[in-house]
Simulated scan of single mutants.
Amino acid sequence: MYSAKDIDNCASDPCPFDGQVCVDFTDAYACICPPGTGSCATDFVFHNVVEQDKCYHFSKFPWTHQDAVANCAEIGGQQPDMKEPREHQWIVEYLQTEIGTSSWTALKTPPPSLVQSYASAPFAQPQWIVPDVYGPFDLCVMLDSTNNYTGKYVACTERYGFICTTAAAPCSPNVCQNGGNCTFCFSGFGAYSSFGSFFQCACPSGYTGTFCDADIDECLSSPCQHGGTCHDQIDSYSCQCGLGYAGDSCEIDQDLCAIYPCPDPLVCVETGDFISCHLPHPMARLAPARCGPSSCPTGWTCQEAGRDAYSCIP
Rank of each mutant, 00 (worst) to 15 (best):
V69F: 02
T166K: 01
S145A: 15
E218K: 03
Q177Y: 00
V50F: 00
Q52D: 14
P112N: 15
C312G: 03
G244L: 00
S117T: 13
Y237I: 04
A106N: 14
A119D: 10
T42L: 08
T146V: 06
N9F: 02
P280S: 03
D53A: 08
L286P: 00
V154K: 08
G244C: 03
N9R: 12
D308F: 08
L266T: 02
A191G: 12
D132A: 15
P263W: 01
T101W: 03
F58I: 03
C230E: 06
I75N: 07
C312Y: 06
S102Q: 11
G151H: 09
Y29P: 13
I91F: 08
V45A: 10
I129G: 00
A155C: 04
D235W: 04
C15H: 06
Y149V: 05
Q240Y: 01
D24F: 01
L95G: 05
P122T: 15
F184Q: 09
P314A: 12
Q89L: 05
P263L: 11
A119G: 00
A246I: 02
L220T: 13
E98Q: 15
Q66D: 10
C268Y: 06
C239W: 04
A258T: 03
Y118H: 14
A30D: 05
T229W: 01
G299W: 13
D13Y: 04
C219E: 09
S120M: 12
C296Y: 00
C185V: 05
N181L: 11
A106Q: 14
E270I: 03
V50E: 08
P85N: 11
S172L: 11
Q225A: 15
D81L: 08
S222E: 14
G206I: 05
Q240P: 00
S197I: 02
T26G: 06
T208S: 13
S238H: 01
Q96S: 14
V133M: 11
M82Q: 04
G38S: 11
C268P: 10
L220R: 09
Q66E: 10
A70N: 05
M283L: 14
F44S: 05
C31G: 09
I275G: 08
E251Q: 12
F137C: 04
N71L: 01
D8Q: 02
H88K: 14
S276E: 13
E218Q: 10
Y237H: 06
V69A: 06
W63T: 04
G36R: 09
A121H: 12
P223N: 08
L256F: 02
E84V: 09
T105H: 03
G188K: 02
A70S: 06
G188E: 05
C176F: 08
A124R: 12
Y245P: 11
N147L: 10
C185Q: 05
Q78F: 07
V175D: 05
